[in-house]
Nucleic acid binder design. Structure first.
Lengths: 187, 187
DNA sequence: CCGCCTCATGACATGACGTGTCATCACTAG
DNA sequence: CTAGTGATGACACGTCATGTCATGAGGCGG
């Protein structure tokens, strides 16, 4: 038994999500979150860089996962093929099954401009991971950037469609459709 | 002659850019900007929503310009064709000729995480304008979103390349090349 | 010429955010 | 037994951002 109740980070996150749901993001203060978790404001900032980060903590390891997937893929894999495979894996591992939670987060993010900015930053971080992966595979800077941004476009458009959908289409199926539509646009 | 020296907003912007160049963005406080402009802190926030907005004020009307271009384009125009034409116009009107200033801004943006976030928000605002333009033209939600995001990808990749280039290639020429490369990737 | 209105700014107060710093104290290694 | 480690508390501080009221020049109708 340690001196403090364990899982301080998890308690802070749970408290924050509760309060965001009750009062909205902007109306809940960091001291209120810390108080509900039985901790101090200072401790909150030791676990999260700022108030917004709480909402994105669950997906913190996605860029690292992307980097790993790209590094381990066979050197012969074609870029777009690699993206398709990678997105299937990421979708299955990190998104499928969290639909309700992700919908809730999407609604919160929509409600606050600061959160929208942070969301964009997270997407950009994923794009950066993809881009570096392609650079490491020897692609030139333009191709790497183009493929990375396109990859993120595919993900975000697909996830938006997935979260909006009432039926139970699988995310990877939607991803495939969206890619086909993009191909058609550019043909 | 009015009661106050005119151009408060412009003076604030000039003061801010000077101080950002001298001390960096983070080290510059709003009171310092206001003082250099001969105004008060409160007045700064009357002209700019926050410290970051100063850097992006010059491009505030781009989304409106995009909306106008899309609304005025002939109804028969194909989406991708429309994007290509529109980007040529926007590039010529808003970017070509500001290379030095835009390079400077890019360096500042790179130096600060908060500014990177704001930059992404501005891109997203442009994407949103394009998306709404396509929705107004009757495209379905997925196509509109896909085309809008792709449009922004083309712009940002091209501008990055343009600002990095040492030769004097024109931005619209780079745009065309980048689009061709994207087409090749997806073929 | 007068009085009223408008509106950009000044002046002041306030609260939240985020960080630096030091003390505390359970646990652990040696 | 002792020294070290590491998460937390306690406190101070500076900046950001906003609400509110006062001020006073210029414009306008009378």
């Amino acid at each position: 038994m340690s001196r403090w109740r364990p899982d301080a980070r998890e308690r802070l996150q749970a408290a924050a999500l509760d309060l965001f749901a009750e009062q909205g993001f902007a109306a809940t203060t960091v001291p209120a979150i810390a108080a509900r978790a039985g901790l101090t404001t200072r401790t909150f900032f030791r676990h999260f860089a700022d108030k917004r980060e709480v909402l994105f903590a669950d997906d913190a390891e996605v860029p690292a996962m992307v980097a790993k997937l790209m590094a381990e893929a066979p050197a012969t894999a074609e870029p777009m093929q690699l993206i398709v495979e990678g997105l299937r894996t990421v979708a299955a591992t990190r998104f499928e099954g969290r639909k309700a939670a992700l919908r809730h987060r999407r609604d919160l993010v929509r409600s606050d401009e600061g959160l929208r900015e942070r969301d964009l930053r997270k997407r950009a971080a994923m794009a950066e991971a993809v881009r570096e992966g392609f650079l490491a595979r020897g692609l030139d800077a333009t191709r790497a950037a183009l493929l990375a941004e396109t990859c993120v476009t595919l993900v975000s458009v697909s996830i938006a469609e997935w979260l909006d959908s009432v039926d139970d289409r699988r995310l990877d199926e939607i991803l495939r459709d969206v890619l086909e539509k993009l191909r058609a646009e550019l043909a």
